[in-house]
């Protein structure tokens, strides 16, 4: 229980740090870029929305910095991020919620898949030291882990969409489709997601394989693995319950650290594929200097990453009895 409370506390602190960074960054920049944006808004939107944006960027300076900070915190808690310029007159929160399912479906599923597959391959590679899997894969994945995601995305488009014409080159669905839960639409969305998903999978799986392989190798020298073999257990059982289950624990912790990297890559992959998710919208807002939308999306990304890490923590607690005990 203490473990859960401590982790939750940590996430609150992290989230607070992100919100504060969001508040301070525009104020610390020279030449107040937000002011330029505000002048473009004026007259287009209702006063309440304008006020929320003013608070967010500190444009209307009759409030003290501290007062502005608390008003901003209040707005964030109530989900008020102002109005998007790019998708005027949508509220930022609405845009974010629209983009979210696409990203969760693409990046979320791919990341989990990459983690599970990579962990499995890493375990088997370590188990068969010096085998084909073990001698071929690590060097290959050391190299692919250095691939820029977006470049691989470009290559994938060039090869599979342009040269071979097998798959659509961009977007999340055909624009002629009606969006909805029909077989035709879902199937088309799946077809559109194959290339971006493969891109993320190929570039992110290497890291999981390498760390899992190395963890397993060090766990294999532990006495309990020797002991399990001495007990005459089947190799399968030793590999899963004794070596694998212990080796995956540091990998789950590593998940927290590597996730930021995967998300960064995914943002660029969405951008290259014009995939209508959070990352694409984030970069659109950057391009259009739509700061309200940009900051809302940034917080969304932070929350998504933190939630995923929390899930990894829960998995750790499930697999490792030591974390469950009060220490």
């Amino acid at each position: 229980m203490r473990f859960v409370v401590r982790r939750l506390g940590f996430f609150v602190v992290t989230l607070w740090a992100a919100v504060t960074a969001n508040f301070l960054i525009p104020r610390l920049m020279p030449g107040n870029p937000a002011l330029a944006m505000m002048s473009r808004y004026r007259g287009h939107i209702n006063p309440a929305s304008l006020h929320a944006i003013e608070i967010a960027f500190g444009v209307n300076n009759h409030q003290s910095l501290l007062g502005a900070y608390f008003s901003y915190l209040g707005n964030v808690v109530r989900g008020r991020f102002g109005v998007s310029l790019t998708f005027f007159p949508d509220a930022v929160s609405r845009d974010v919620l629209q983009a979210l399912p696409w990203t969760l479906a693409l990046v979320g599923v791919t990341t989990i898949l990459a983690f599970l597959l990579g962990t499995l391959i890493g375990l088997v590679a370590a188990w068969r030291r010096g085998g084909i899997l073990d001698s071929v894969l690590p060097p290959i994945f050391v190299i692919t882990s250095a691939f820029p995601y977006f470049w691989l995305a470009m290559l994938a488009i060039w090869l599979f969409a342009i040269k071979l014409g097998w798959l659509p080159q961009s977007g999340g669905y055909r624009i002629t489709d009606d969006v909805g839960w029909t077989w035709a639409f879902v199937g088309d969305a799946m077809r559109h997601s194959i290339l971006p998903a493969l891109t993320i999978l190929v570039t992110s799986i290497g890291g999981w394989i390498l760390t899992m392989r190395n963890n397993t190798i060090s766990v294999l020298t532990e006495d309990y693995v020797r002991m399990a073999r001495a007990k005459g257990l089947s190799p399968w059982r030793v590999m899963w319950t004794y070596a694998g289950r212990n080796a995956i624990l540091p990998n789950l912790t590593g998940f927290a650290m590597s996730l930021g990297f995967v998300v960064s890559g995914a943002i660029l992959v969405e951008f290259v594929f014009n995939y209508p998710g959070v990352g694409w919208m984030f970069l659109q807002s950057v391009e259009n200097q739509d700061y309200a939308l940009m900051q809302g999306l940034f917080l969304m990304i932070v929350i998504a990453v933190l939630t995923a890490i929390l899930a990894a923590d829960a998995a750790t607690a499930m697999l490792d009895p030591r974390t469950r005990d009060v220490r």
Binding site: K231, G232, L233, T241, N246
Partner: peptide, 26 residues
């Protein structure tokens, strides 16, 4: 059987580890 401080799998209960051994041989 060799035996040392770390010869028990930290993520399984004693009962589970004993069950493993029994299942492997009987």
């Amino acid at each position: 059987m060799q035996s040392a401080m770390n010869a028990l799998n930290p993520v399984l209960t004693v009962a589970e580890q004993m069950r493993d051994a029994c299942r492997a041989h009987s």
